[in-house]
């Protein structure tokens, strides 16, 4: 799994700008972007850059990590429902696991995801951190 640079680079729109899509027919927002709406199966969809603000839809605290994530244990993963309506799976950061609740307001930040081995590239991407209710 050494040279994966093209693979990581290919996802820069989603990972660094949080670009998803919205269906012009039924209005459903989704992440990532795709050509066919997951709700109505319509093909009239447009790209959309999401605000990064949302709320925790569900969350879990990981104690047994897959290879590459051991150093972060325990860490919190979540499904975040963005203000635009789309769900995103992500890690939460800058947060104590015991303070997380469903409905908690969060915002998107850029953080390190993992390192691809000792000689590999460092992968960055979106995580979410708590934000004050506004």
């Amino acid at each position: 799994m050494a040279l994966q640079l093209p693979r990581e680079w290919r996802w820069r729109q989603e990972r660094y700008r949080l670009i998803g899509g919205r269906c012009r027919r039924c209005g459903q927002a989704f992440f990532p972007h795709r050509e066919i709406c997951p709700r109505c199966l319509g093909e009239d969809v447009a790209k959309e850059q999401f605000s990064g603000r949302g709320r925790v839809y569900s969350y879990a605290t990981v104690y047994k990590a897959p290879v590459g994530f051991e150093e972060y244990v325990p860490y919190v993963v979540a499904l975040v429902q963005l203000e635009e309506g789309a769900l995103v799976a992500a890690q939460l950061t800058d947060v104590d696991p015991t303070e997380v609740q469903i409905g908690m307001p969060v915002e998107c930040v850029l953080r390190r995801w993992r390192t691809n081995g000792p000689d590999g590239n460092i992968i960055y991407g979106y995580k979410f951190r708590p934000r004050l209710e506004s």
């Binding site: 047994k64 590459g68 993963v77």
Partner: peptide, 8 residues
């Protein structure tokens, strides 16, 4: 969009 982010 799941496993690569650390979701076991």
């Amino acid at each position: 969009y799941e496993a690569g982010l650390g979701l076991s």
